[in-house]
Design a protein around this nucleic acid. Structure first.
Lengths: 143, 143
DNA sequence: CCTTGACTTGAAGTTGACTTCAACTTCTAG
DNA sequence: CTAGAAGTTGAAGTCAACTTCAAGTCAAGG
């Protein structure tokens, strides 16, 4: 497959593919000439990268889980740690979601006067201010 | 309260407080001289900002929910939309978390050979690749 | 052969949320 | 009064994950 083929199939722009390769997350071959050609397994590798990103791993962290050949080579402890981090995040997000819904439905004339909104504020703030976040980060690509 | 007091109580660096003010999210008074003084209500405002951030709102979006005086003035539709976005995110995160745990526990010698890991990969990749994220973003401040 | 379009590279630009810096000014303690 | 801590400003720097750009290479079609 050539780069545009991979790009088409995955939706990942070729610039990103080159970037991944430059970062050492991907391998390509130069069969003849200087153009990249990809083995079909590149799709799995990209899926793995996507998984890692969805889990909040940085590209550097993801690379550390790959062999030089792109085969997964996973640090199980890190995985569990990340899973726990995500679970914590989920809890906080649930609270935030409920909070938002409440805020949207709250009958108080101003939220400054709504006791449950105040409570929610406090709770969310506690999570957000106290901990000042771990490293957890879910990023929207393209920025 | 002066800036260092607020900073101490919230854990938010004074540089960030000035930045918020510059962005129009916060108000301070200059009682005498050129130094900022904050009303106690600033703590609530900061809590609100933290809530918004936890919900994945950008500072600009948060500002749009505040009156010029820092009072909340909330767009309920946006709140519900954000809550739904967060719920979607939660679902995806749950899948990722489970996936990570499985990957950590998986007995297959290489994850390349583990069918359920493959399946997970596909699923996560579908979420991550297909949608290429909405605008949802949970950011770790400081960076 | 020549054009056209896809590809290549390295370098520089983008975005958001801050932080850091330089150069001052201003309180506060001694 | 004076040192020094803490505050002020605007401007520039940082970080991650890309994107965009400029300038050049290469392959296929007419």
């Amino acid at each position: 497959m050539d780069i545009s083929e991979v790009s088409k199939q995955t939706g990942i722009p070729s610039s990103a593919l080159r970037y991944y390769e430059q970062k050492g997350l991907l391998t390509s071959v130069r069969e003849k000439g200087e153009r990249r050609r990809y083995a079909p397994s590149v799709l799995d590798q990209l899926a793995l990268i996507a998984l890692g990103q969805a889990a909040g791993l940085s590209l550097d962290e993801i690379r550390s889980m790959l062999t030089p050949y792109g085969q997964p080579n996973i640090d199980r402890q890190l995985l569990v740690a990340k899973a726990e981090e995500i679970d914590t995040l989920i809890k906080r997000l649930k609270a935030v979601s409920n909070g938002l819904r409440h805020a949207a439905a709250c009958p108080a004339p101003s939220h400054a006067e709504c006791p449950s909104f105040q409570k929610l504020l406090k709770a969310a703030a506690t999570g957000a201010l106290e901990k000042r976040w771990g490293k957890t980060k879910l990023h929207a690509p393209r920025g």
